[in-house]
């Protein structure tokens, strides 16, 4: 039989397998999330462990979000300026930069970077603990590994991501100022007054609300992939990579839904 014929014969099976794997993952992730909500309110509360993860995740992500935040604002202002000037709306540049960053770009880009850095880290860490039997060792010593390893990491992600987003938003606004200052010579006081005049509390709320959900997605996907890893060291690599892909995809899909919902709520 020719190679092409074999491929043709196998393809429907591969496709079918991928579909079933996809639904298995979604079901597994749903049960995993339910497990989180079941455990999160029960004592003992591992505050020290949550604090440790918050510090760890914050420090790990800070350098990259610092650079990203600044560049988002700078590039956004540089790209938008010629267009706005062409339509005689150059003075709206500070408002446009701040609104875009606070409502959409800040939360989504921070979440995607956070997913790349943290979801893979959690996936790798937990999967390596799984394959070296550390999770089993915890269970045998009568400690609930799900509560100690998973719940604490997810909570840390939910707490730290909104803080990082606020920081990115701030840096992006500063980056935007630099671009406008270099091209138009606008003073900082005038820039910041325009920014604050154009921003309302309702602009911050959907953005920050979203980051709580994005933080949960990053934590749950990384933990799910790592906690259920199999196949030794190969499984560690697979858990880490697939955690990033899945978390990023879920962030984008959730963002699409949340934007629709927030637009409906705010417009009405």
């Amino acid at each position: 039989m020719k190679q092409e014929d074999i491929k043709e014969k196998e393809n429907p099976q591969i496709f079918g397998k991928s579909i079933s794997e996809f639904f298995e993952t979604i079901a597994g992730l749903t049960f995993f999330a339910l497990g989180f909500f079941k455990e999160v309110f029960l004592p003992p509360y591992e505050f020290a462990e949550i604090k440790k993860h918050i510090e760890d995740l914050g420090i790990k992500t800070l350098p990259i979000v610092t650079v990203t935040g600044f560049i988002i604002g700078l590039v956004l202002a540089m790209q938008s300026e010629p267009v706005l000037v062409r339509f005689g709306a150059g003075s709206f540049l500070p408002s446009m930069v701040s609104l875009s960053v606070v409502r959409e770009l800040g939360p989504v880009l921070t979440a995607l970077i956070f997913a790349g850095r943290v979801s893979s880290g959690i996936g790798a860490e937990l999967s390596s603990m799984r394959v070296t039997e550390q999770i089993d060792a915890m269970e045998v010593s009568a400690v609930n590994p799900f509560r100690f390893l998973v719940v604490t990491r997810i909570l840390a992600c939910v707490i730290i991501l909104p803080i990082l987003t606020l920081y990115v938003n701030f840096l992006a606004v500063i980056g935007g100022f630099l671009a406008i200052f270099l091209s138009q010579g606008m003073h900082f006081k005038m820039y910041i007054t325009t920014v604050f005049k154009s921003l309302e509390f309702t602009d911050f709320l959907p953005g920050l609300g979203k980051t709580l959900i994005f933080g949960f997605i990053v934590g749950i996907v990384g933990s799910y992939k790592g906690y259920n890893a199999t196949n030794g060291t190969v499984g560690v690599g697979r858990a880490s990579t697939s955690a990033v892909v899945m978390a990023s995809l879920l962030i984008l899909i959730t963002d699409m839904v949340l934007v629709r919902i927030t637009v409906m709520i705010w417009n009405s």
Binding site: E125, S128, M129, T132, Q134, D136, A137, V140, S141
Partner: peptide, 11 residues
């Protein structure tokens, strides 16, 4: 329970 690879918590 003493595990085959010791299973010490590496963090």
């Amino acid at each position: 329970f003493l595990f085959q690879g010791s299973a010490l918590y590496d963090s």
